[in-house]
């Protein structure tokens, strides 16, 4: 029985890992094709088409692309501003690609930061994100409350001299739960978010509300609970004077008593992780 459960779980994780890899592959391919003058809309479309060709039919959310100071969400007041615009990419400009495809019922939500040519500020931001990845995993394994972890990440950002830009996301979340999604022939979307995924999130929110937890990892009181087992798409987003950088990937939280097993990153073979390893 136990082995059956384990194998089922590992098969599930393999599915999530597969779609996350696919998404990162898409990000790297599209990033390599970016040229001066390309717009955010065109970039978002490139991502969408690339994934569609490889069998993606549903989305947690449609691909985003942010260029220049939009990577740091400068002047963002309403959520509609997250959607791709006609801003054109220029040499040296930072960019962020963010997409959440659903593939064979598994969801990924990834963020990829880069720049067209050299951008030393973003380079530095990416370097400094490593400490956040380590901090988050460590404190989740310690079973600290999500709100506390959020505040610790905040403090680390301030010490590094950066602004917290995930605060700009809806509900100011640094992470949210993702789950399996039933595949339907028709998958409508609401403001770029897949209705199936939204339904899952809403169901979680309802359960959580009754049981005292939330699928949104925010700075608010409703996140004042230990990490809930499941898959969390974690997205710390640093901003520094008009330049932003983030990564987003899935953190697996389990109810295991073993520290290592209680929480781990779904995949360690990702562009930003490889980058940190190479620089050492």
């Amino acid at each position: 029985m136990a082995t059956a459960l384990t194998s089922e779980r590992s098969a599930e994780l393999r599915g999530f890992r597969r779609v996350q890899r696919l998404a990162y592959e898409c990000a790297e391919t599209v990033a390599a094709q970016l040229q001066p003058g390309v717009t955010e809309r065109e970039t978002a479309r490139m991502q969408r088409e690339w994934l569609r060709e490889r069998g993606v039919r549903d989305w947690f959310h449609l691909p985003f692309a942010w260029f220049g100071d939009r990577t740091a969400f400068v002047g963002f007041r309403i959520p509609l501003q997250f959607f791709p615009t006609d801003r054109r990419l220029e040499p040296g400009m930072p960019f962020i690609l963010d997409m959440a495809p659903v593939y064979e019922g598994f969801t990924a939500d990834i963020g990829y930061s880069g720049s067209l040519g050299v951008n030393q500020v973003q380079h530095k931001l990416m370097d400094d994100l490593q400490a956040h990845r380590e901090l988050i995993l460590r404190e989740v394994r310690e079973r600290r409350s999500l709100r506390e972890i959020y505040e610790d990440v905040d403090r680390l950002m301030v010490r590094q001299g950066y602004a917290n830009r995930h605060r700009a996301y809806p509900f100011g979340v640094i992470a949210h739960k993702v789950d399996r999604v039933r595949e339907r022939r028709w998958s409508p979307r609401l403001f770029g978010f897949g209705t199936q995924s939204l339904k899952g999130l809403a169901a979680d929110a309802l359960h959580g509300h009754r049981e005292g937890w939330s699928p949104l990892w925010s700075p608010y009181r409703f996140s004042d609970h230990p990490p809930r087992p499941g898959l969390w798409a974690v997205e710390p987003h640093l901003g520094f004077r008009g330049t932003g950088a983030k990564f987003e990937e899935i953190l697996v939280v389990t109810d295991s008593r073993d520290t290592e097993e209680s929480a781990f990153w779904l995949d360690d073979d990702l562009p930003h992780v490889r980058r940190w390893a190479e620089e050492k």
């Binding site: 030393q120 500020v121 530095k124 010490r159 590094q160 001299g161 520094f240 004077r241």
Partner: peptide, 13 residues
């Protein structure tokens, strides 16, 4: 340490 960090980032921008 904090001052050094400020100086480092200042040079970057």
């Amino acid at each position: 340490e904090a001052a050094a960090r400020t100086a480092e980032m200042s040079r970057l921008i």
